[in-house]
Design a protein around this nucleic acid. Structure first.
Lengths: 321, 321
DNA sequence: TTGAAAGCGCTACCAA
DNA sequence: TTGGTAGCGCTTTCAA
């Protein structure tokens, strides 16, 4: 089933079939009708590879994420897919966590799409430079800018400062931070904001999931300095930490306060409600899609960084109000 | 940067470059070395569209889901992406919720990939038939079989029966079901299993998110027949329902019991803990990827349905133990 | 072991 | 308004 079959059936040339199918040029009504009918009857669908080859474009973009586990990435992806879909672009995804050959994965992806979105630390800086240098348009998401590539992120240090002040107002003084700053730019900045605001922060680096948070909290609670507040890198870590506190029979927030980041669904349902920072995750994804589309449309703006707002969500886990 | 540039630089024909790059045929060591070096120096990456066109395949698959919101889809997608990635296939995704032109979306997708996975009611049956009929290999996921297409799903009716028995043992008698069976095959089967086991079920159809669950529960609680147990179509609906119960000052499980499906993260953290049914969501995605790969590899098995197990997870929300 | 060349299916330019 | 045709960049026979 190729364009030739349609052309034969309609008694026209393949050029005319192409014109009718794409609607790119004036075609006589009668001719159009014949072609349209042939297309229908044969169920003709143009070969996408042939189109891409001839057009020199894919009408597809990709997003590379560290992972797909947990609510955060899913929400970002949702925002991205929705926006990209409305712009008429297909979306490819790729998670790199646990993959050894990230460079190869990204190069393969770059060859399949018109543009790439890179989330967090899913791809090493040198690979980013390489791919961008090779001419693939890119947008960086939730991470520092590299080489003047457009970047979309959310306010992080600021919200960390706001959270720290709030905790100080509650009278908290002994701060522990649960989370590994090396794992994500977000975590790094959150810790920076916290450190810059309170006197001293004890850090327990840990992965960003519930089990790791639980374990890290155990460590904190077992030390000789009783933690006063556990500032967790994200909500999943915080939920794990709350489990550890409960197991020890510690009352929250009286004996220990706990806070998170992201405002995932569980944050609202856990008891006590988890104080956290709400991030516009879908918007993050959507903005990335739009930014990329702008570049692909030949937008000539200077490189920019788009910073989205975040908001402190105060619930019961940080102290009484 | 095409294969010709590399050929010129290495002083060989493009055929030889192709051989070296793909490793498909015997090439003299010295020649191979020259070509490899030229590839390096030029940073040559073959055009994916040209390859696809010449090879007649894409080395990519797609998954179509109703939506990306909530933990369920994200987990399935995670399992799928991981498995497909390891099989060396890129993955395209598409969410259809709220899209008017589903048929067009799916046809476009089908033209870009070697095979398609369709989750739940994301695509109408007639479109599924059309695409499958046109020759695109497919796997159906978490839905009824159509036209003898391979299908992967989880045990649903059975777990519903098990749940219902458990609730009967607790002495519950007035059953309400919150969720719209028309929205997903899973919901449909859950209701079927429940209806087949208990005397009478009152159904309040609602969307499968928290807000809808909250609202539906309000309706149930406002009626003259005080609900005894709210069997919810999934955990998000159940969490919403719990919110509604709490707002009314109803004690759970004493005055109302609530149950869900999926065992999302919040189910464990909410108070009281939510009794629910655990589904192997990642495995679901992974099995779909493998099933599709089998077909694409020319597997000649008769069409089959792969049913994964599910497990009742009893917590406090269904009654005292 | 290597090269020449015929496709793969489509787009878009140039003529008619 | 239409047709012919030269690419798009690669894979893979077929000969040498």
């Amino acid at each position: 089933m190729t364009i030739h079959d349609v052309a034969d059936r309609a008694g026209v040339s393949i050029a005319t079939v192409s014109r009718v199918v794409r609607g790119t040029a004036r075609v006589a009504d009668s001719t159009r009708a014949r072609v349209t009918q042939a297309v229908q009857e044969l169920g003709f669908v143009p070969s996408r590879s042939a189109q891409s080859l001839a057009e020199g474009r894919h009408a597809a973009n990709a997003i590379v994420l560290p992972d797909l586990a947990g609510p955060y990435y899913a929400e970002v992806l949702l925002g991205y897919e929705e926006a990209a879909g409305e712009l008429g672009r297909s979306v490819l995804i790729r998670a790199t966590r646990g993959r050894a050959d990230v460079r190869a994965l990204v190069l393969d992806l770059a060859a399949r799409v018109d543009g790439l979105v890179i989330l967090g630390y899913s791809v090493p800086d040198d690979v980013i430079r390489e791919v961008a240098g090779a001419g693939t348009p890119m947008v960086l998401l939730a991470r520092e800018q590299v080489d003047r590539i457009d970047t979309v992120r959310v306010r992080n240090t600021g919200s960390a400062t706001e959270l720290a002040r709030h905790l100080l107002d509650h009278g908290h003084r002994t701060f522990w931070f649960l989370g590994d700053p090396a794992l994500s730019p977000d975590v790094h900045e959150r810790l920076t904001g916290l450190s810059g605001t309170v006197d001293r922060v004890r850090v327990i680096p840990c992965e960003l999931d519930e089990a790791a948070g639980e374990h890290a909290a155990e460590t904190a609670l077992a030390g000789d300095t009783a933690p006063d507040v556990l500032v967790c890198a994200n909500d999943e870590v915080a939920l794990g930490a709350m489990l550890a506190c409960k197991r020890r029979g510690l009352r929250m927030p009286d004996e220990v306060a706990v806070t998170g980041w992201d405002d995932v669904m569980a944050a609202r349902h856990v008891d006590p409600g988890l104080t956290t920072v709400r991030q516009p995750m879908r918007e993050l994804g959507a903005h990335a899609a739009l930014a990329l589309d702008n570049r692909l449309s030949g937008d000539d703006q200077p490189p920019y960084t788009d910073v989205l707002p975040s908001r402190l969500v105060v619930r019961a886990s940080c102290g009484h109000h």
